[in-house]
Each structure stands twice: as structure tokens, then as C-alpha cells.
Amino acid sequence: MLNDVTFGQYYPAKSFVHRLDPRAKILFMIAYFVAVFLAKNFFGLAAVTLFLLFAVFMSRVPFGRVLRSVKMILFLIIFTGILNLLFYSGELTYEPLVQWWIVTISYESIVQTVFLSFRLFLIVMGTSILTLTTTPVALTDGIESLLKPLMYIKVPVHEVALIMSIALRFIPTLIDETNRIVAAQKARGADFETGGLFKRAKAMIPVLFPLIVSALRRADDLGDAMEARCYRGSKGRTKYKKLVLTWRDLLGLLFFAALIAGIVLLNIYFGGKFDILHYFMGG
């Protein structure tokens, strides 16, 4: 039922992107989002696409692997696309193509749909480069380090980060446990494979209860083990692994600065996304 411990989608390799500091990668991701949303026209999005392809190349992750992440939200892209296509309510310069009941399809709504779908696609691709090249543990470390300033306003950053890493650590353990319980229930004649969605969901109840009970017991044990190893919160604690910024992160920063500068220039030079219609339609 549940497979091996391939949680998250980390793709192990030793590339430039893999070796970037996780903190830098998280900040770059934000910069990338800014670039995607800053781009006002298709030339901007094309520039982001080129940048994305370059990043995929540098990460040595097969392109198909990155593309696979889009598959999961393909439905969302199509759904929002259709909504945009049929219900775009902005100002129209050209005659609508179809007007029926509350539905309007116009040149503008087509442009809008393509533009937004493209944007969504770029965002998903970019995010998956981050998760493909960074282990969940490194991501947690990075988030902890970035959120550290919040400690001054009494946010328990260390505790939250520890909870996240313990959760990650227990995923394989709980998957094993689930498989064991499922096998035990099957041996007693439980049926997980037939019936409709509702029936199958109901069949999972005898799996979930033992799983929760056992997870609570594990939590109890772990608490004892942590206390026995002198855990007492973040007070007086040191950290073994230190994140260090390298020349790679500096180079990455330059790339992203160039990307955003380029987008701004393209925005000024080519104007908004609908300007492309003038080119096709004349006028």
C-alpha cells in the first residue's frame, strides 16, 4: 500500500544548486516568486522560463522529474484556466468572441488565461526545484535559521523546528507501522480494496485508531528518551551543524538580482500583457 521511505521528493546529486545554503535557497525562492509576479508581459515570463531552464540544468535533476510535480496540480491549473477564460471581467478593447448567458470569451480573457496558467506553471516548477535539491532536514534547518529573529518576540522558533524535524524522522517509522496494521487487519479478513470511496475510507478506521494509539505511546517514549539525554528546551543549547554561506550563494544572489532587473526592464520596454493584442489585431 504505502511504499518505501521516499517522503518528500529529494533527488540526491552533487550539483551547484544542491550545494547552495538552504537559507539562501529559500530566499532565492521568494525572489523567484517576486520575479514571476513582477513580470507584466509575456516577454517577462519567457525570461523567467529561460532562467528556470538554466536552474534545472544547473541542478542536474532530469527535466522530466521536475515536470512531474506539475502533474499533481494540473487539475488546479486547468480549473483556474477555465474560470478565467469564461468569467474574465476586465475591460474589453475588442469585440468579445462569444457571449452567452453569463459567460464571455474574449481576446482579453484568452490572454489572461494563458498568462495566469503560465505563471502558475512557473511557480510550481520553481518550488519543486527547491524541494528536489534540498533535503527536508536541511529545509527545516534553513527555516529555523531564517526565523530566528522572531525569537525576540517570543516565538518558540527552536521548538517548532524540533517538532518539524521529529515529525520528519517519524514518517518512515509510522509508514512501517501502518503497513503492519494493514497486514494484521487483512489477515483477519478486512477488505481495503473493494467498494466505493466511502466504504474504503470506512475500512481505514480500524487502521487509524491503533496507529494513533501507538503514535501517542511512541511520543511518550521519545519524551523520556529526550529528557534522559538532558533535553530542557533551547536554554543553553549549542548547535552542531552550522550553515555557512559560500561563493555559490553569492553567485546565486547575482543571478537572481539580474533576473529581477531584467524583468523590470522588460516591463518598461514591452508594457502590459494585453499589448500583444495590438500586434496581432492591429490598431
Binding site: 527536508p136 532536514v137 524540533l162 524535524s165 521529529i166 520528519l168 524522522r169 517509522t173 511512541r218 517514549d221 521519545l222 523520556d224 528518551a225 529526550m226 534522559a228
Partner: peptide, 11 residues
């Protein structure tokens, strides 16, 4: 402790 699965905190 007894259970080898319930003592490690890190991955």
C-alpha cells in the same frame, strides 16, 4: 530504553 524506534530524534 527498550524500543529501538522510539529514541532517535533526528533523521
Amino acid at each position: 530504553f527498550q524500543n529501538p524506534d522510539n529514541q532517535a530524534v533526528a533523521s
